[in-house]
């Protein structure tokens, strides 16, 4: 006999609760507490002085506001517009509070952090540093691709001895912090009478590190090419090398582009570490100008330049990933 599920206990419970809106999700509650918050907040702003009471009251205010925003933006019944305005409200309140209590003089701030004269003076150096950063990133990407691809190809031959060395390489360079690696190359190698320029050391260090990741990415790419593909190619009389070149690599490449680009971008950000071995890249140029002018404005500007460089790049990664997913339908061919 079929059980009558509509009358089962679970369903009854669901029906009971579904009709009832919890208090904190009711509009009355929302409006009332919003009004309370506004009153509370405005009271605080008119109160002057920085006594303990005010500070505690402020903390409570902010905590309440944030909790409220949390409740609202997790509620599916609320509209997107309300959620967005809540978030902006919180941000506005936080900024206002910050300006009110932590900034005594806004002109001083501009003078300190957004000093146009200092930035103008530092500009040519920062541009030079920016160029160095880009060429570092580019060269490192090149080196890492050569290393990674070579390792992955040898790895795909599945020879035990080769595998041992490749795995050792990957483990070593993934485990060692990049900055340590850079120090070793730049300050350690000269004792073996290997003298590399700062730039070459930077490229080598970043390349060796990123190469370990790239080899793992390519390996995953090769593994994504099915055994049947390789067999079909070999059965046609193609040599292992031809099979690699014409069948495995093109397919693997397609699969690895999204993670590969992501890795290049991540590795490009690591160029900032090269400032530790006296390469005058963007960060180093920024810090140098900062101490020269005794003003942190160049650093702020460096941050902006990094953002200008990397926000589009990270966006690009996301875009490529999305595109690849669209075209890569899972099919057995």
């Amino acid at each position: 006999m079929l059980k009558d599920y509509t009358e089962s206990n679970t369903f009854k419970k669901l029906r009971d609760t579904s009709g009832r809106v919890p208090l904190i999700r009711q509009p009355v509650f929302l409006i009332a507490s919003c009004v309370a918050l506004v009153l509370y907040g405005s009271m605080l702003f008119w109160a002057s002085g920085e006594g303990l009471v005010i500070r505690i009251a402020l903390s409570v205010f902010v905590a309440l506001l944030v909790t409220w925003t949390g409740i609202i933006i997790t509620d599916e019944r609320r509209g997107e517009r309300l959620k967005t305005s809540m978030v902006f409200l919180v941000l506005a309140v936080l900024v206002l509070l910050f300006l009110e209590f932590h900034v005594t003089n806004s002109e001083e701030i501009i003078e300190l952090f957004f000093n146009i004269t200092v930035i103008k003076k530092a500009w040519p150096y920062l541009v030079l540093g920016f160029k160095t950063t880009i060429s570092l990133a580019f060269m490192a990407a090149l080196v890492s691709t050569v290393i990674g691809l070579t390792l992955a190809i040898f790895r795909s031959f599945d020879n035990k001895v080769l595998n041992f060395f490749i795995i050792a390489y990957v483990d070593f360079f993934r485990a060692i912090p990049i900055i340590v690696l850079l120090m070793l190359i730049y300050y350690g190698l000269p004792f073996l009478n290997i003298r590399l320029s700062a730039f070459a050391s930077g490229v080598l260090g970043l390349g060796l590190n990123s190469g370990a990741y790239v080899s793992e990415i390519f390996r995953a790419g090769f593994l994504s090419v099915s055994k049947g593909q390789l067999e079909a190619s070999r059965a046609l009389g193609m040599t292992p090398w031809q099979t690699m070149q014409k069948v495995a690599l093109p397919q693997a490449f397609k699969a690895v582009i999204p993670p590969l680009v992501g890795n290049y971008v991540a590795s490009a950000k690591d160029t900032a570490l090269c400032s530790s071995i006296s390469i005058i890249e963007l960060l180093k140029a920024g810090t140098a100008q900062q101490s020269l002018n005794a003003n942190p404005s160049p650093l702020i500007f460096v941050t902006v330049l990094y953002l200008i460089l990397f926000v589009p790049l990270t966006r690009l990664c996301g875009y490529i990933e999305k595109r690849m997913k669209k075209t890569q339908r899972q099919i057995t061919v």
Binding site: S226, G228, Q229, E231, A232, S233, R234, A235, L236, G237, M238, T239, K246, V247, P250, Q251, K254, I331, T332, V333
Partner: peptide
């Protein structure tokens, strides 16, 4: 062996056409 295989055509259950 590649010369031998070149003389033997093989058709697989899963087609194994090169998708690219």
């Amino acid at each position: 062996i590649n010369k031998v295989r070149a003389e033997i055509g093989m058709v697989f259950q899963s087609f194994n056409l090169f998708p690219h």
